[in-house]
């Protein structure tokens, strides 16, 4: 490689490293703030007032979904397997909402420690399989 090209190569590598370092700094500065939601454990320790909108996320606890038969009110518990958070919601739930499935809710934390959600989003996991396979896996368990 001739000297001029070598020089250009060094300059470009410097640009590349500079860009990567800058991005890394931004990423590490954002760190926690880029999280979409808080876990029940984080919410338990946090001091949040009743008007601030926050997102909470975790797994829907088994046998915790209580649907009101006359209204769209629903109560369920979100867990991160360490702490639980009781969610109250009025509205239509997404199709993938189920027990033992991930969920992200947006709303306010009430004084009594329950969560009043205005939006419920289902979180999909990375598993894809046909129904027959899913059935087989469930039988194995």
């Amino acid at each position: 490689m001739n000297p001029i090209r070598k020089q250009r190569l060094y300059a470009l590598i410097a640009v590349l490293i500079g860009s990567l370092v800058a991005t890394w700094l931004v990423v590490s500065a954002l760190s926690e703030n880029m999280n979409l939601f808080y876990s029940p454990t984080e919410i338990k320790d946090a001091k949040v007032d009743e008007v601030t909108l926050i997102r909470a996320g975790g797994m829907v606890k088994e046998d915790s979904i209580i649907k009101d038969t006359r209204t769209l009110n629903v109560t369920f518990t979100v867990t991160d397997y360490q702490n639980d958070l009781e969610i109250n919601y009025e509205g239509i739930l997404p199709d993938l909402f189920a027990e033992n499935a991930g969920v992200v809710v947006r709303g306010n934390l009430k004084k009594d420690g329950t969560f009043k959600a205005i939006e419920v989003l289902a979180k999909h996991d990375e598993n894809y399989m046909p129904p027959e396979v899913a059935k087989l896996i469930n039988e194995d368990l």
Binding site: L36, P94, L96, E119, A122, H124
Partner: peptide
């Protein structure tokens, strides 16, 4: 929209 319940969310 059909799976999560929203068109867009500002996640990472």
């Amino acid at each position: 929209k059909p799976t999560w319940g929203t068109w867009w969310v500002w996640d990472a």
